[in-house]
Nucleic acid binder design. Structure first.
Lengths: 152, 152
DNA sequence: GCTTGCCTTCGACCGCACTCGAAGTCCTAC
DNA sequence: GTAGGACTTCGAGTGCGGTCGAAGGCAAGC
């Protein structure tokens, strides 16, 4: 398991900023062992086991169990978690993610609404990028000002 | 007052994403009437009066009063609030901003630490930009996939 | 002189996204 | 057979960043 986990982690790392759009697909295409424990998924995603249980509890993922009632994440569940993580990384509120997941559950008829949701979120991301670039400029300006003023 | 306010707002809007590094300086260079009410500053910055009082309460700004005890923001206070707003826009935690303000209060000896603080924050912003770009790519990928799948 | 309306302080409360702890279960290795 | 450790559920707690409401003050206009 840890071999696969390391490969996955590595792939996600390597694709950071280069081919990030493929990470979800990579998860799908890897021969991830069908079964991953919560600890494996935690290590893979960087989320805590607590958080993974929380995501399940609020309905973002459904996770199969073994005979003893323990979580065994299958590929679909892992892919879902990775996707959710990406959305959370971009500050998409959990309520919106839950809505999206709900739509997916309801079947293909909801695709237009899902698309609208994603496009709204896309706009949010662009705004955030814009704000961040503005703030970066302010900070850079302050830094260079100090540089001039105190010789650093 | 409202004329000045509109000019300022306009300038901030126009410089969005173009010369954002200058906004704080613009505030300084404008003939902002020495006195602005809390409502004026709220309108100018987009913060609520509640939030402005909150910022003062936790020590981020000091605001002079008129004879009746009402807040009269001077240029320094307005500039401070605008700067804080920029930092908050980039998710700088209030605790860090408070620390920075504290250092400013302590005088010029603290400039190296202020600089370090800003540089750490600058690194945070770059990370956020990176994450956001990754998330944007994922969302775009999902959107184009839907485009292919459902003809939108 | 009284209404209107923005201002003041103060402390309580909210929503979000976790985060934790308690109490108990189950498999593994010795 | 027993100790260890990772797992389970459940509900409560935390930290952040505001947000709100109550109770009252002051000034301008009718």
């Amino acid at each position: 398991m840890s071999v696969t986990t390391e490969r996955l982690r590595g792939l996600i790392e390597t694709t950071r900023g280069e081919l990030p759009s493929l990470t979800v697909e990579l998860v799908r295409d890897l021969e991830v062992h069908e079964q991953m424990s919560i600890a494996d998924v935690a290590e893979l995603t960087g989320l805590s086991a607590h958080t993974l249980r929380y995501y399940e509890r609020i309905g973002l993922v459904e996770v199969p169990r073994d005979a003893a009632g323990r979580r065994l994440y299958d590929r679909e569940a892992v892919g879902r978690v990775v996707f959710i993580t990406r959305l959370r990384d971009s500050d998409m509120p959990i309520a919106a993610i839950a809505r999206y997941v709900e739509l997916v559950k309801q079947g293909p008829d909801t695709e237009p609404e899902r698309l609208a949701l994603l496009e709204a979120h896309r706009a949010d991301i662009l705004n955030r990028l814009h704000d961040l670039q503005g703030a970066l400029a302010v900070v850079d300006y302050k830094i260079t000002t100090y540089g001039g003023a105190c010789g650093t």
